[in-house]
């Protein structure tokens, strides 16, 4: 047994050499921070560092749950995540189905190409555009609203508008990009199935219902499960850039709160405790999602 192992290690030595920097990266930038989580059970002291600071047990966890804001922040995170699935998930499927029905191929390619574009904008540029377009005094959207005789809306200063603005901007950025996978799944459907459906007298709507949708159903199921697994994962950037104290009531999520508490106010232990709490809930989601997808006999993440 032992000689084989050593022989194999020797045989693979080049590969280990090539792999070493990658593993070093994961250790230094992924696993060392995981151990840094212990800071949430300690009173972080800048001069003592993470290891030598005093233990305080669950002090910061209690502090978070006794904070009246905690409930709102957790709720905001979940609500935003759920809205993203409910409104953001079907959008690319609908776009893919509409594109699929298009007979004018050049136009199809044009719409596809253009719809991917917002995906490549940085969070800063996307948020900058949104803030400018929604400005109550100079923004084009309010200009249109006023031209219909309504009062301008201060979208980004009202908590009631934040979720709508954020989710719409996510759909704007991701609808085209998200449709790529579905369009690929659509091309894999056997054309003979459409032929057979037509002979049976199915119109286009019926064909969509009985041939197209079942054809891409596996892709929809898998992506839906993965999406549920990532429900609590947000790009911190855009939420952070679009929110402001006037909208914290709906816009303050775990990630932005952790940033403010930790990086801005320097309360590292408290911020880490909140982050860990949410990280564990997130892990439960991803793990369950993966178990479900594995049980369905399709692909799984690992």
């Amino acid at each position: 047994m032992k000689p084989t192992l050593i022989r194999n290690l020797k045989r693979d030595r080049t590969y280990f050499l090539l792999l070493a920097p990658v593993l070093l990266y994961y250790v230094l930038f992924k696993y060392v921070p995981m151990f840094g989580i212990i800071v949430s059970f300690k009173d972080y002291n800048l001069f003592a560092g993470v290891w030598k600071s005093d233990w305080v047990g669950l002090k910061y966890y209690k502090m978070f749950f006794q904070n009246p804001d905690a409930y709102d922040i957790i709720k905001n995170t979940f609500v935003l995540g759920i809205y993203k699935v409910v409104f953001g998930f079907p959008a690319p499927i609908i776009l893919a189905l509409l594109l699929n029905e298009l007979r004018w191929k050049a136009y199809k390619r044009f719409v596809q190409t253009v719809s991917y574009l917002p995906h490549f904008l940085s969070a800063v540029v996307a948020s900058g555009i949104i803030i400018m377009l929604l400005s109550p005094s100079t923004g084009w959207i309010n200009h249109v609203i006023q031209s219909f005789g309504f009062e301008p809306v201060n979208f980004l200063q009202q908590a009631s508008w934040f979720r709508t603005v954020y989710i719409s901007s996510e759909i704007w950025q991701e609808i085209g990009w998200g449709s790529i996978i579905y369009l690929a799944a659509l091309t894999a459907i056997d054309p003979q199935l459409y032929e057979a459906a037509r002979i049976d007298g199915a119109n286009r709507w019926k064909q969509t219902l009985h041939v197209t949708l079942p054809g891409i159903a596996p892709a929809i199921v898998i992506l839906f499960i993965l999406q549920i697994g990532k429900i609590l994962e947000f790009g911190f950037d855009k939420v952070y850039l679009l929110s402001n104290p006037a909208t914290y009531e709906t816009s303050d999520i775990i990630a932005t709160y952790v940033y403010r508490m930790g990086i801005i106010q320097g309360n590292f232990s408290y911020a880490t405790a909140i982050d860990l709490f949410m990280g564990i809930i997130g892990l439960v989601f991803v793990y369950s999602a993966n178990q479900v997808s594995r049980r369905l006999g399709e692909t799984s993440l690992w």
């Binding site: 995981m34 840094g36 989580i37 800071v39 940033y259 990280g279 793990y287």
Partner: peptide, 26 residues
């Protein structure tokens, strides 16, 4: 050798991370 274990070691970081603050401190 240990290919599976190494992949697990890498993929695990997609599921769980130290988070913003510990990474910042590191």
């Amino acid at each position: 050798t240990f290919g599976k274990q190494i992949m697990l070691f890498i993929v695990f970081t997609m599921l769980f991370s130290g988070g913003m603050i510990p990474t910042y401190l590191v």
